[in-house]
């Protein structure tokens, strides 16, 4: 394999993630230290006026980063931005994807900029921007 290069407008291969389940939320709570009970127990979620427990926004954010994992041998995620626009519930199946918007020369390589999203059906639950630096050497 050789170093990846993306043309402006080129899409990243969309990935469909396994449905969100409670075990994953418990794992993410433990791994991140975010034990906010609205992510863990139905009672806390109902009390907060939600129809059920919701996924951590940062978990949805992190899954958009997975788009770049196949390319880590050649570079890394240098900038990452995630805006949270919708709630994610147990059983939701998310798709993550993105599209190249810019290519910039950087000191140590080439920075490829992407618009990225996480969607449930047609609803965008998170969107953002990733700058992936591909090393020049």
């Amino acid at each position: 394999m050789s170093a990846p290069a993306w043309e402006i407008g080129e899409k990243l291969e969309e990935r469909t993630l396994p449905p969100i389940d409670r075990v994953q939320l418990i794992k993410y709570a433990g791994a991140s230290g975010d034990y906010n009970p609205i992510h863990l127990t139905d009672d806390a979620a109902t009390e907060a006026g939600l129809p059920g427990v919701i996924a951590h926004g940062m978990l949805t954010g992190a899954t958009m980063g997975l788009l770049f994992s196949p390319h880590l041998e050649y570079g890394y995620v240098k900038t990452f931005r995630s805006r949270f626009s919708g709630m994610v519930f147990l059983g939701d199946t998310l798709r993550v994807g993105g599209r190249a918007t810019e290519v910039e020369e950087a000191a140590d390589g080439v920075l490829h900029v992407f618009d990225v999203y996480a969607r449930r059906g047609e609803d965008t639950v998170a969107s953002g921007e990733v700058g992936f630096l591909v090393y020049g050497d």
Binding site: F80, S82, R83
Partner: peptide, 8 residues
């Protein structure tokens, strides 16, 4: 949590 940004 409205937005998260990180720059390395």
């Amino acid at each position: 949590h409205g937005e998260f940004r990180i720059s390395y």
